[in-house]
């Protein structure tokens, strides 16, 4: 059995890693670290895990961690970049859910994160943790950099169009709606329930760090693009809907779109297309994916303006974080890629 450790296991993403890994038939969850909750049972922080494990949180310790086969780093920015080099030296594999190794170009870190990266060389080696784009490279990778949650939704929605060079690079708008768990456990007035409920709060109307990843990945697939990104907090706990407004480089019809998307994502276990003439959920809606590893993608052609609207819905904690991370682990260790991830979402929720 593969031995697994989760560093930063008391956060929402950490909790999702635990929830998924505890049902995984090929791994043994050895270590779950948390400075603030060291000594507590996991269920003290994650009530959904009561009765599933008697494991307790512990303080992160390099020697204990390097006895595992793989370590998930669910840590804030600028933490994993200290830990990762030591872990890699000891020969174990690292799946980093923080932003520290996502970007290839160190200058981009200075620009978007106001941070000069301490290990620029590792940026080359790190593999971007999106199985749908990098399955082969993930297989042999030592270091995985899992994408940002909003970046995941936008990239998966737009990748097929980028590859066909269908996106006018100067007029691409990505308008995101995201739930409160996207901000994790950091508490503030803005996360205070009476102030957080019933909002449609633009919190990053003119750009966000995730733009760097989206442009990096879409640029690799097709022509370079500049992403006009706006994020809004809405009244939802889990979930992201990215509404992507694309002005195409050539006109096409709905059949072309179906063909392009089916072709690009043929055989992908966690991509679903939702453009249905029947039922209540005719387009992607986070409500239909909450708790699951699915990314629902829909599209529509606006005859009036020639615009293509692409809709992409995920659970920011699962396909946007812990789910994709475990999917990468499954690929790295040759397990069934869907192991522990064939979780139906909850409906209604």
């Amino acid at each position: 059995m593969v031995k697994v450790a989760v560093v930063g296991a008391s956060g929402f993403t950490g909790g999702e890693l635990l929830r998924i890994l505890l049902t995984h038939r090929n791994v043994e969850l050895e270590i779950a670290t948390s400075r603030t909750n060291a000594g507590e049972y996991l269920h003290t922080v994650h009530p959904n895990l009561r009765g599933l494990t008697m494991l307790r949180f512990e303080i992160p310790n390099i020697d204990r961690l390097t006895k595992c086969d793989v370590v998930f780093l669910s840590t804030p920015a600028k933490v994993s970049s200290e830990l990762t080099p030591k872990l890699l030296e000891s020969g174990i594999r690292v799946i980093d859910l923080s932003p520290d190794f996502r970007l290839k170009n160190p200058d981009e870190y200075r620009r978007w994160y106001n941070w000069s990266h301490p290990y620029p060389k590792l940026l080359e080696e790190a593999v971007y943790g999106l199985p749908e784009l990098y399955r082969d490279r993930i297989r042999s990778a030592r270091l995985i950099a899992c994408p940002g949650c909003m970046a995941t939704a936008a990239i998966l929605g737009l990748a097929p169009l980028a590859k066909e060079k269908l996106i006018q690079g100067d007029y691409l708008v990505v308008d995101v709606k995201i739930g409160s768990s996207g901000a994790g456990l950091s508490r503030s007035l803005s996360s205070h329930h009476s102030e957080r409920a019933n909002v449609v709060r633009p919190y990053a109307p003119a750009g966000h760090r995730h733009v760097a990843e989206i442009e990096q990945e879409l640029g690799k697939l097709g022509n370079p693009v500049k992403v006009g990104f706006s994020a809004h907090a809405v009244d939802m706990v889990r979930g992201i809907l990215a509404t992507c407004h694309v002005y195409p480089t050539r006109s096409l019809d709905i059949k072309d779109l179906w063909k392009i998307y089916r072709g690009f994502y043929r055989g992908e276990p966690f991509i679903r297309f939702v453009r249905d003439r029947k039922g209540l959920f005719r387009y992607p809606d986070p409500k239909a994916v909450v708790g699951s590893n699915f990314c629902d993608i829909g599209f529509e052609i606006d005859e009036h303006t020639g615009r293509i609207v692409v809709l992409s819905a995920i659970d920011n904690l699962v396909k946007g974080a812990a789910g994709s991370a475990v999917q990468c682990m499954n690929i790295m260790f040759g397990f069934d890629e869907t192991e522990a991830l064939r979780i139906p979402s909850l409906h209604p929720v």
Binding site: W258, F273, D276, R277
Partner: peptide, 9 residues
């Protein structure tokens, strides 16, 4: 017969 993908009938 409905289409399983796009719901057209």
């Amino acid at each position: 017969v409905p289409c399983p993908d796009c719901g057209s009938e």
